[in-house]
Every structure is written in structure tokens, then in C-alpha cells.
């Protein structure tokens, strides 16, 4: 310090000037690399949220090279992660990290008992199969008779948004459909979103207590029981899902059946799955690469033959 202070005026004056571009650069760098503020998560930049567990070869009971990314290495050894370009990390969701709900709920003994039907049937869009809401939603994974038992993997919750009561205790619920501002942008009142603008938040949500989901009948559901909600309007898919023909089972093909909730693949407020980048195409097998870049291969045949007859020294 003493040294700098002791310098001549001109010298000291030159310091900030010299640093100016450097500081600017550093500042710009910070700006671009800083993690986005929480509010940014709700920006209307609707990337496909479909989270699938990142593939880890050998990960599991037997161990293996954990951390092998679902990347494709091309022949030249360049590694590229398909979704790295979009900056999405959602593909690496770790299912155990949720703070709510048991990791595995299994209730294989319950069967739907039509005699115990106490709830009225709900209106539905599809007509292929009729979900049975006669059992309470707590055992809701028995929506259809004879479904093999399964556990649903709890959803990942946005910490900033849970519980809803963080904010909705002091703000009174306003039931009129309208454009929402921060922190909920308008997921729903736009054309092309879920329900094509026909739904208002309270079609699926309630804000009593900690907040949660509600069926069209008004029954309370936890966020992890979202599939019961979806079942009301998409019974066909939900039926397939509960039998294993839609959606995804994780880890094993036999034994404890754990499956992904609908909201793991379909973002609840914009359920259609967006196109995304594919893993790069396979390289051509070794030895079969095209070598027509080399002039002696690329040249037309007549020129190649002609070259054989040409006098040495002639063009």
C-alpha cells in the first residue's frame, strides 16, 4: 500500500485507467456466469422440462463407472452432451433428493372395491377406461382394478414455491381468472398451453393450509399424487401408465415397481413434450470412412486414367 501511495500523481492516475477494461471484463464475466436469480426460473422460456434419470452405466447394486454421462462420443473422440447446449440440468434429477414424501410407497394389497363407492364420478375427456375414485386418493394408485402394485417416485419441488403458504397466507386468494404476474407467470391463460386456456389454476389447485392439488370434485391431493389428478381427464393414459405401458419404470424389471409420476415427463402446466436435440449420429465404421477429400480419389476417373498416360512434365 505504502508503495502505491508513494507513487507520483500521474502514475496513480493512470492506474484506474489501465484497470478499467479489465474491471469491465471481469464485471461482464460475473454477470454472464452468475447463477440466475430465483425469479428467473419462472421466465417464460419453456424448455422441455421432461426429466429422465441420466443414464449411468453400471450404477446400481453392482457398482460401475458412476458418472458416465449420457453423452455420445463420436469417432473423433469429441464428447458432446445432447442437452448441454440448452443449459438444462434437469436430466440429472436425483430422485432421492426430495424432501417430502417417502421414497417408495407400496400398497399392493388394496384393491378397488366398487361396493364402497362413495364419491361421485368425475367428468372426463377420454372414454377408453373409467378410473375408479371409490377409494380415497391416499391409495390412489389403485385407480384401476387388478393393477400390479407400484410406488410413485415423488416429484422434485421448486424450493422457492413450496409450501405455497409461504406467500399465500398473507395474500388472500383471488378466484377470478386473470393474467398473473410475478411470481407465477401466465402458464395457463395462453393458447396452446394445457387446456388451451380453458383451465384456471383452481381447476387443479387449492390454497388451503400448505396448498396442494384438488380433484375436480374438490378432494385434496398432495403434489406427489398428481397422477390422480391427471387420471380424471386422461384415464386412458393413466390406465396404461399404471399397467406399465405408458411412462417409465426405474431400476429393475422385476421386484419393487417404482414408476415416474406423470409430471416427471409432462410439465403439468404445458404437458406436450418439446422437441430436443438428439445424441449425435453414429460414426461410420472404422475403415469405411469416406476419403473423397483426397484428390486422387475425388478426381473423375478419366482424369485419373489420363494422368497415367500423360508425358512427365506436361500439364
Amino acid at each position: 500500500m505504502a508503495c502505491i501511495a508513494g507513487r507520483s500523481i500521474t502514475h496513480a492516475g493512470a492506474w484506474p485507467v489501465a484497470f478499467c477494461p479489465v474491471l469491465l471484463l471481469a464485471f461482464a464475466f460475473l454477470l454472464f456466469t452468475a447463477p440466475p436469480a430465483a425469479a428467473d426460473d419462472w421466465d417464460m422460456d419453456w424448455e422441455d422440462p421432461a426429466p429422465a434419470p441420466g443414464y449411468k452405466s453400471g450404477a446400481g447394486s453392482t457398482g460401475g463407472p458412476v458418472g458416465a454421462e449420457p453423452s455420445a462420443s463420436t469417432a473423433d473422440g469429441s464428447e458432446s452432451r445432447p442437452d448441454a447446449a440448452t443449459g438444462e440440468d434437469d436430466w440429472d434429477w436425483d430422485w432421492e433428493e426430495t424432501d417430502t414424501g417417502p421414497a417408495y410407497k407400496s400398497d399392493t394389497t388394496r384393491r378397488v372395491d366398487p361396493a364402497a363407492a362413495s364419491m361421485p364420478k368425475v367428468p372426463r375427456v377420454g372414454e377408453t377406461a373409467e378410473p375408479d375414485f371409490s377409494v380415497s386418493p391416499k391409495s390412489g394408485h389403485q385407480l384401476f382394478a387388478d393393477v400390479p402394485g407400484f410406488g410413485v417416485i415423488p416429484s422434485i419441488k421448486d424450493k422457492g414455491m413450496h409450501p405455497c403458504s409461504n406467500c399465500h397466507t398473507w395474500a388472500k386468494s383471488n378466484l377470478t381468472p386473470r393474467r398473473l404476474r410475478v411470481p407465477h407467470d401466465n402458464f395457463l391463460l395462453q393458447h396452446g398451453l394445457h387446456g388451451k386456456g380453458e383451465f384456471w389454476c383452481f381447476t387443479c389447485h387449492h390454497l388451503d393450509g400448505a396448498g396442494g392439488l384438488r380433484t375436480l370434485e374438490g378432494e385434496r391431493l398432495s403434489f406427489d399424487d398428481a397422477y390422480i389428478l391427471c387420471a380424471q381427464c386422461h384415464p386412458g393414459e393413466t390406465r396404461d401408465w399404471s399397467f406399465g405401458a405408458h411412462g417409465k419404470r426405474v431400476d429393475n424389471w422385476q421386484g419393487n415397481r417404482r414408476i415416474l409420476n406423470c409430471t416427471a415427463c409432462h410439465y403439468q402446466h404445458r404437458p406436450n413434450i418439446k422437441p430436443r436435440k438428439a445424441v449425435p449420429p453414429p460414426p461410420v465404421r472404422r475403415g469405411l470412412e469416406r476419403n473423397d477429400r483426397k484428390p486422387h480419389v475425388a478426381a473423375p476417373l478419366w482424369e485419373k486414367i489420363g494422368a497415367r498416360y500423360r508425358e512427365p512434365g506436361q500439364p
Partner: peptide, 27 residues
């Protein structure tokens, strides 16, 4: 060892279904 084949585990869409065709309760 009861684990899923790698292709099924990696598929994000759930298009792949693997199992025991002798088990009437299998997917």
C-alpha cells in the same frame, strides 16, 4: 440380476418395455 437393460434405463420417454413374457403380471 433384475436390473433393466441399459437402453431401457436410458430412454427418457418410456418407449421401451422389457420383462418376462412368462409372467402374466408383467408390463
Amino acid at each position: 440380476e433384475n436390473r433393466q437393460p441399459a437402453c431401457q434405463e436410458a430412454c427418457p420417454t418410456g418407449a421401451r418395455i422389457f420383462g418376462n413374457i412368462l409372467d402374466p403380471n408383467s408390463e
